[in-house]
Amino acid sequence: MVFSEDAPPVCPLGTEACPVLAAYLRLQEECRRLLALSQTDGLTGLYNRGYLMDALSREMERTRRTGLATGLLMIDLDLFKEINDTFGHQVGDAALVWISRFLQQNVRQLDIPCRYGGEEFAIILPGTRLSQAVRLARRLHRALQEAKPRIQGHTLRLTASFGVDAYDLRERLTPAELLQRADAHLLEAKARGRNLVWHWQLLSDQASPEVSPEERTGLLTPKNLRKKISGSK
């Protein structure tokens, strides 16, 4: 058999309906399916955590070669357990599927949304600086707040906390370290009351007397949403 990247394989003996070739093609298809399966999250169809780590080290390698930064968002749905507890796990699962579509539809073509686990998601942003990553996170944050998904007859208000970080040539960092840092920002966002975008530059922003966009959003968030958050503590 002759193997080529572009052309479909043919039987070298020219046999019509070659059984070996048929078996080969079946195996090849099976391999593709298994590979996709091993990279995908079963419920949501997003990439899974294994693929996240592979893709992250590939993109960080690209940063080292091209000098273009790699952005990373860690996202955690706020008070998701309450949805499961109030409406049941079917609604919870449907909400996870909905949020996955939402993320896929609201990121750019080259971004890589993954399900990290539970109600936590990660998005790799190839060729994206911190400031751009923060802008994307704010856009997602706002769009999510405004969306009122109707899931199995229930209108839900989903909000999320965001941790944002980026890798550029100024530092040495492993994929696990970058992930850990973005995750630390996510924890900070949750500690500060959830439904918030957080990144390390905010710490220095806090030192300036100007009211930051995050603070402004917090002050001007619609009242019904706020009530839900404070009422559910």
Partner: peptide
């Protein structure tokens, strides 16, 4: 609530 939450948070 709004003001207190944002002030505590930030």
């Amino acid at each position: 609530d709004t003001l207190a939450q944002v002030a505590t948070r930030f």
